[in-house]
Amino acid sequence: MNKIVTRRTLHETVTLMEVEAPYIARKAKAGQFIILRIDEEGERIPLTIAGTDQEKGTVTIIFQKVGATTQRLDCLNENDFLLDFVGPLGTPSEIDEWKGKKVAVIGGGLGVAIAYPQAKALHEAGADVDIIVGFRNASLFILVDELEVACNNLYVVTDDGSNGNKGFTTTALQEQINAGVKYDCVIAIGPMAMMRAVCNMTKPLGIPTVVSMNPIMIDGTGMCGGCRVTVGGETKFACVDGPDFDGHLVDWDEAISRSRMYKKEEQLSTEKHSCNLMDVELQTKRGGN
């Protein structure tokens, strides 16, 4: 059982939680993830670690209400408990390799939550970090203040231009490259369509590009093989071989198709968990925040 010590609504659909997990807090490195289960009936879902506080012994997770489990997770409050919380899983991201090098960390939407700890680790390790993040609109911003201090240059773009800077992350990256910035490495974290678009852009330019995959998995230790990703023609398990991979070698069509495998079931499950009554109850409990 792991206690939720902080719960903060970042915006309508994205929530931050700090969860008591001292062993994991002590060990976690950028790029690693945890698997949680809310209760006996719950499924196991992987979430990338967004930060840790070793003194408090907590692990930060940031999630978007996209399906049944994240919706149920969002219903929990401070001082509630999660039944299971295991990690840190996965191979940590390469950080030291980029010391003294010019790196662009690109985050899209919720991916920003994962891009942030990576950028921070790189920045602290002495890499020259540019961060490029994109959101659909300015009301969906998360972690912008934190990002500001984790890099040398921060570029924030919106699909609709509501922050006065219209464009996609790829557009912003292109602008930097056009302006003569030479990146030794690009790290792209976000929706698969975005990661693929970044890879398509950097491949012809020969800029090494690392992506963070977040496929469906159960155990997270290599046992189920549900998280298979084809990388350079070889089957890899994202949970143990990843989640970071060479983005130029990922079979994106397959990865996108695999991420959609349970779409129908997810809908069924989400409908079951999202009755109006529950929403009303929650509003009252939280004093309508």
Partner: peptide
């Protein structure tokens, strides 16, 4: 994960 009782349990 008791997927045979889905959607009573969450794992499909």
């Amino acid at each position: 994960m008791k997927a045979y009782t889905f959607p009573e349990t969450d794992t499909p």
